[in-house]
Design a protein around this nucleic acid. Sequence first.
RNA 1: CGCGGGGUAGAGCAGUCUGGCAGCUCGUCUGGCUCAUAACCAGGAGGUCGCCGGUUCGAAUCCGGCCCCCGCAA
Length: 320
Amino acid sequence: MNEIKKPTIVFMGTPEIAEIVLENIYLKNYPILAVVTQPDYQPKGKPDNLISPVKKLALEKNIPISQPQRLDVDFKKWLEGLKPDLIIVTAFGKIIPKEILAIPKHKSLNVHASLLPKLRGASPIQNALTNGMAETGITIMLMDKGIDTGDILSQKKISIESEDDYVTLTGKLAVIASHLLIDTIPDWINKSITPKKQDTAQATMCQLIEKSDGKINWTEDAQDIYNKFRAFRVWPGIFTFWENKGNLQKISLNEISVEINISGKRYHLGEIFRYSDSKIGIQANNGVIILGKIQLAGKNETSVDDFLNGYPNFIGSILK
RNA sequence: CGCGGGGUAGAGCAGUCUGGCAGCUCGUCUGGCUCAUAACCAGGAGGUCGCCGGUUCGAAUCCGGCCCCCGCAA
């Protein structure tokens, strides 16, 4: 790696993956002028504001913080005043106008958690999992006015293990992202990288996740249901409905596993049955979902064994 | 004052409407049975029924206030 004068950086990002990338930039002694992150979120009934992981780290390291509601004229003026050499964006969560992207001398780079042009958009990690993909990766690219359509500077692949879920995969990708970024910045400043156009014909877009996407359809393959569980681990989770004494009650499946080698008798799709002495299963297509921890709406999370002590009629019902 | 569910033994729940001995399943302890077991049989321990006040001969239950947990919406 060539020696360069380190560019001054404004970092824009919000969740854990952004925090890890930011931390590595900080540890490598890049001058960070400011971080920009989403406004604090105040949940009802909780005493404390939830602050983004990026903000938490910035507070710890005494880096100036901006949390604009909108990226408007005032924000632009503020940013111009900082005269950054480079903007780094990682999972920021808002679309950034191109006037802002154009401010830094060395433009704006985006760290995206997929192998572009695959999985452009807001939720690449979850979509890699729901699609059952065998590999994904990190792309660092120049930002333009489209969503993840900019020219590619560098990429790194990672294989997705069958036991990976959103948490573990995000962790792995974050580490790769932070290293790839540190390797890429000097080459970009030195102009020793030629940006590559994306092959638009190969592009796929990932849709924004909604809470309702967590609803389980018991006619789906067991493996697909399990993939959804892995992808939605942190949010929105997966859920189904149980008819108990005439009431439809929402049940979240917070901890499950899957058995795809089906043996023995089959049940109705969505039917709950005793899969073995210690396992409670739900029949899905081409496999069985094994319950670990579940949560009835309005109640605390419990193990399925505890749940059955209170609701013995659970076994034999059919989930909807 | 956004909408809704909940707080009962170590865990999960019923009982509350219609006030009248504190219950169920599991766990735990003791004993029995068994080659053996997360099995089976018998017995026991374990409760401030979230907190405060009110009504009543009598309150987990009815009335008023408060605290806490959770789901939805944002």
